[in-house]
């Protein structure tokens, strides 16, 4: 669907900033693709390169087989009409009612008044704002404003929805409801969503694929479940720490226990099976559970355990092999 080929973007000014340093990336159609990174990593620049709100200095951006950098202004406007975008600060027109805001892209597309009315009605229902159509944005809460933004972005039935920190200005409860709306839209309308965020929790809740951006460099990309359970880069690992709370407490580390400390990660069905108790029975060792949690990644259950294995060296080695054979991720932390 979308492909970045060696895209660079440098901002020159008082001090030069290399916002994107040769990013190559493929975004598949139909899913929810997340881009995560710290503030200033270049996330906004990256997503804005997709609809050329920001023009890359070099490299190519392809959307649906179209090379976006080469479009004439007129062709670009046409392409933009087929892409929806929502913003951190909503960017609604304050002089227009909710109805008129949602109708705006339809007006641009020259849709007839009757069609506009019925389409806006549908969209308002989709985002749950049927009773607010005649109010002005000033009178709406942040969550409601973002719903208007979403309805507006979907008005022309785009195949692609770009979300620049769509939930960063919202409280956790509202964030959850807006994210689940995005997920519903993705599932029901089958459109591709690209969203950027600095919160791992957002990625975890709705994304299928994720790309990790650090200092304008793409550190890694892949399925969320893979990147979360087997991070390949330090940047990812750092960001995950906050989410899982799985950092080894300093006290445990320094205790220097003779036992082997391991972190086990269970994905999907593995999270439901009694693998630990099987291991204890078949390998005759003791297990001391220090920490554990079970979570959900989009729809996939995902568990994490921090345990000490108490047994002879052979027993421990065999136990680890048993776990790995059962597709449990094992990370030996000490000794």
């Amino acid at each position: 669907m979308i492909e970045f080929k060696d895209v660079t973007k440098t901002f020159t000014g008082k001090n030069t900033v290399h916002a994107l340093k040769g990013v190559s990336l493929k975004i598949p159609a139909g899913g929810i693709f997340g881009v995560i990174g710290q503030s200033g990593a270049g996330k906004s620049t990256l997503i804005r390169c997709i609809n050329m709100l920001e023009r890359p200095d070099s490299g190519e951006v392809w959307v649906d087989g179209i090379l976006m950098n080469r479009l004439s202004p007129k062709e670009l406007r046409q392409a933009r009409k087929e892409t929806g975008m929502i913003f951190q600060h909503f960017n609604l027109l304050s002089s227009r009612t909710v109805f008129q805001n949602i109708a705006f892209p339809l007006e641009l597309a020259g849709v007839s008044k009757d069609k506009v009315r019925s389409r806006v009605g549908q969209l308002a229902e989709l985002v749950g704002l049927t009773d607010k159509l005649q109010t002005y944005p000033r009178q709406l809460s942040g969550g409601q404003k973002q719903r208007v933004g979403i309805a507006r972005a979907l008005a022309t039935e785009p195949k692609l929805l770009l979300c620049d920190e769509a939930t960063s200005a919202l409280d956790p409860e509202t964030t959850r409801s807006v994210l689940s709306l995005l997920r519903t839209i993705n599932e029901n309308l089958g459109l591709t969503i690209v969203l950027i965020t600095h919160e791992m929790a957002v990625i975890q809740q709705i994304c299928d694929h994720v790309a990790v951006l650090e200092d304008g460099v793409l550190r890694e990309t892949g399925r969320v479940i893979d990147v979360f359970t087997r991070p390949q880069s330090q940047a990812t690992a750092n960001m995950l720490q906050g989410l899982h709370g799985s950092k080894l407490p300093a006290e445990l580390r320094s205790k220097g226990s003779a036992n082997t400390l391991v972190r086990l990660t269970f994905i999907d069905q593995r999270a439901h099976q009694p693998i630990i108790s099987q291991m204890i029975r078949t390998h005759d060792l003791d297990v001391n559970i220090l920490y554990g949690r079970i979570d959900q990644m989009k729809t996939t259950p995902f568990g994490m355990l921090l345990v000490e294995l108490d047994g002879t060296r052979e027993q421990v080695t065999e136990a680890v092999q048993f776990l790995q054979k059962n597709q449990v991720e094992v990370e030996v932390l000490s000794p």
Binding site: N51, L53, L76, R77, L92, S94, F104, L108, T156
Partner: peptide, 28 residues
Amino acid sequence: DPGVIEAAESMGASPPVIIFKVMIPEAL
């Protein structure tokens, strides 16, 4: 707010449309 103009650009609005349908009403 520049964001509002940018939103219109992201919807494929041409400069005249932005002037007459966004800038003038917003600044009225």
